[in-house]
């Protein structure tokens, strides 16, 4: 009984750690359909509504699947089926005038709605696609990247 409960607890750790908010939290998963995954430092976590996200996380959706993400500056990114996104760089500390947002859209379909980083410091934000860099000022973008 003791051994079973210990392994049960250990099995829950990845799920629990997916919700724990820390100073490293850059955003959360807000909406989800189907299966999606968060790849972080060599581990793969299942995505769940409410799960926190960190810098350098890679988010991947299955097929069919879709996920909506909100960052701490209110940037909103949605992914359709079979899509992949990397949160390459992120900083939102207005008091220190520290702003950075770099998203890498690797493949799939995306919607991107800018947040406070773009409002306060538009030059600090960029989107990277396989072919291009996109600089945005206060708006919404739809991006499709075909395999």
């Amino acid at each position: 009984m003791k051994i079973i409960s210990r392994w049960f607890f250990i099995a829950l750790l990845p799920i629990a750690s997916a919700f724990a908010e820390s100073s490293e939290t850059v955003g959360h998963i807000q909406t989800l359909q189907g299966q999606a995954f968060i790849q972080r430092a060599g581990t793969t976590l299942p995505a769940a509504i409410g799960a926190e996200l960190r810098k350098s996380d890679q988010i991947r959706t299955g097929k069919p699947a879709a996920v909506g993400i909100v960052l701490t500056d209110d940037t909103t990114i949605s992914l359709g089926s079979n899509s992949e996104l990397s949160l390459s760089d992120y900083a939102f500390e207005p008091k220190q005038s520290k702003f950075a947002l770099s998203l890498k859209m690797i493949k799939g379909t995306f919607s991107y709605i800018t947040g406070q980083i773009v409002k306060l410091s538009p030059d600090s934000a960029r989107i990277q696609t396989p072919d291009a860099t996109i600089a945005v000022r206060g708006t919404k973008l739809l991006v499709e990247i075909k395999d």
Partner: peptide, 22 residues
Amino acid sequence: GGQSIVLMADPGGHVGQAEVVT
């Protein structure tokens, strides 16, 4: 195998701008 980028109005109805650079 290519990419498409479309500018849209945000939920508040505001249209900003985007520059796509290769």
